[in-house]
Simulated assay, not measured.
Amino acid sequence: MAEQLAPMPGDWRRALAVVAHPDDLEYGCAAAVATWTGEGREVTYLLATRGEAGIDTLEPAQAGPVREREQRASAAVVGVTSVEFLDHADGVIEYGTALRRDLTAAIRRHRPELVITLNFDDTWDGTVWNTPDHRAVGRATLDAAGDAGNRWIFRDTDAEPWDGVRWVAVAGTDSPTHAVDVTDGLEAGVRSLIEHRAYIEALTDEDPETYARTFVEDTVRQAAKHFNGDPAVTFRLYPR
């Protein structure tokens, strides 16, 4: 019997999802977001970049607006109406106080109980090297969750300190601790990834709908064996 994961906490109302690029949340995590918004919870997306360096066939000045439009459409599919961009440079995000301040300001402004981010480990599956942007944003998000409650750090943000973050949940990690049943959000999660059509068409010759459905459904099925057989999205949960 495969080791079973604990269910994600359910006693929260507001979440802030913080990632580096458009499409980061759609590779699996969006099905969880759809499940949560379907239950009446509020989820906001915060992206460090507009993904302008993510399409090899488009110059950044062209790619950025395309990817922003795709991200907003993608978010709408899973019930997210608030999507913000910080305009850090795609591909060269620097971990440091400037990034931490921007994320801290957003956490204080949105006042989430749950903060979500993406795998910031060195690798995916132990062999595929992770990108510097993912590593920088993920680590800075964990730090900002604490910074947000400290009134003596980043004192120039518009919003008052917020010490109400109860958990940071990291999606896409090789060492998850928790999961959420996404039976109700799975189809929306697939459609959410399909909205990144320009990105997918530049990435693969496979039909975007086939590509998106295969990726998302395979991911949640793999997780199911660790969550009572239910299609699931997994997280490494850091309580605060």
Rank of each mutant, 00 (worst) to 15 (best):
P208S: 08
R151A: 15
I194D: 02
T210N: 08
E160W: 10
R151N: 05
A224S: 15
T234K: 08
G149D: 04
H178Y: 08
I153P: 00
D121P: 00
D121F: 03
D181F: 10
E160A: 15
T131P: 00
F215M: 15
A223N: 15
A188T: 01
P112M: 08
L114S: 03
W124H: 12
G138L: 01
T234F: 00
L142P: 00
T123D: 13
F215H: 14
T157G: 01
T127M: 08
Q222S: 15
E187L: 04
D122V: 13
F154L: 07
G189E: 01
H134Y: 06
R197I: 12
T123N: 12
N150S: 07
D156R: 14
I116Q: 02
D121Q: 11
V168G: 03
R236S: 10
A188Y: 01
I116P: 01
S192E: 08
N150Q: 10
T173Y: 05
L114Y: 06
G146F: 11
G126R: 09
P112W: 08
G185D: 06
Y211T: 07
G149W: 04
R155V: 11
G138K: 00
T173R: 10
G189C: 02
D122M: 13
K225F: 11
A136M: 03
E195L: 03
G229T: 08
P176A: 12
A145V: 11
V216W: 02
